[in-house]
Computed example of a mutant assay.
Amino acid sequence: MKDDNVVVVIEGKEWKRSDLEMLIRAMRDTSIPQQFYGDKRGFLQVFARMVSLANEAEKQGLDKVDPHKWRLMYNRDLYLAQIYLAAKQNTIQVLPDEQKAYYEAHRADYSKAKVKVIYLAFNDTPMASADPKAKKPKTSAEAQKLANQVIQLARGGTDFGQLVQKYSDDADSKAKNGEFPVIQPGDNSLPTQIKSAVFALKPGQVSDAVRQTGGFWIFRLEEFVTSSFDEVRDDIYLTIQKERFQQWMDGKQKSLDVQFKDDKYLDYKSPIE
């Protein structure tokens, strides 16, 4: 559809196809595109009502009275600041040599640990079961004692996979003979205690029990694998770009011309009527 025809006239303003498409693209991070393409006529009816009401508000000067003028001012400045920051970050370029140098200096950050795991669940406050044959959950003390025994067996040479099948309470990893998703140093989805325990190991070593809510984790490190430069090139670009952007932001904050004059008001914690 190459013709740029007028699609609708709202309050005397002509809206061409290109105008509407640009408007909808500008709102792509909202539900507006779905509403528009789902029912264009219905959307334009609602849009026309909004435009008409906004025009009436301006005619009555509502955009220039309290509290509306302050909210409009704040929202306008906030939006302009956000789009300026996005544009500024996109201007920060990172050269290929800089990416390579960063990779060489931070190789450890791109290592991945392949591990196997045994999970021993516990519950110190279990609910009473109506089934007399139901398996009673371990207490934390019982799980800790069992964990120490399992670790001793694993470090003594017992096949870790066999220990997984005999003792682990984690169905997903147990079905894979203890295999666990690879662990990376910068993975914020995992607790620090787990990452610290894993990256302190050498291949073949078994960790101490790592206590988390509801259970103990025992890890065996299979191997460390370092991602190649090509695998992480894009991540490095974004990392350096973000670091430089933050440096620019810190400098911008320090250079702001802000002069506090009324300490009494600034230190008062409640609104002043």
Rank of each mutant, 00 (worst) to 15 (best):
D4F: 01
N5W: 06
N5V: 13
I10Q: 01
M27L: 12
M27A: 13
T30C: 02
S31H: 13
P33D: 04
Q35V: 05
F36W: 04
V51K: 09
L53Y: 11
N55W: 07
E56G: 06
E58I: 13
E58H: 10
V65E: 10
D66W: 10
P67T: 04
P67C: 04
H68T: 15
H68I: 15
R71P: 01
L72P: 01
L72A: 08
R76S: 12
A81W: 10
K88D: 11
L95M: 15
D97Y: 11
Q99L: 12
Y103H: 06
Y110E: 06
Y110Q: 04
A113E: 02
V115L: 06
L120D: 01
N123Y: 02
K136G: 00
K136W: 01
K138S: 05
S140V: 03
E142N: 02
A147E: 02
V150R: 02
Q152D: 13
G161H: 05
Q162F: 10
D169E: 08
A171R: 12
A175F: 03
K176H: 09
N177F: 10
E179G: 06
Q184I: 11
A200E: 11
V206C: 02
V210F: 05
W217G: 05
V225S: 08
S228F: 06
F229T: 06
F229K: 06
R233F: 07
D235H: 09
I240W: 03
E243H: 11
W248I: 11
M249A: 13
Q253E: 14
S255C: 08
D257N: 14
Q259F: 12
K264D: 14
Y268T: 13
P271G: 09
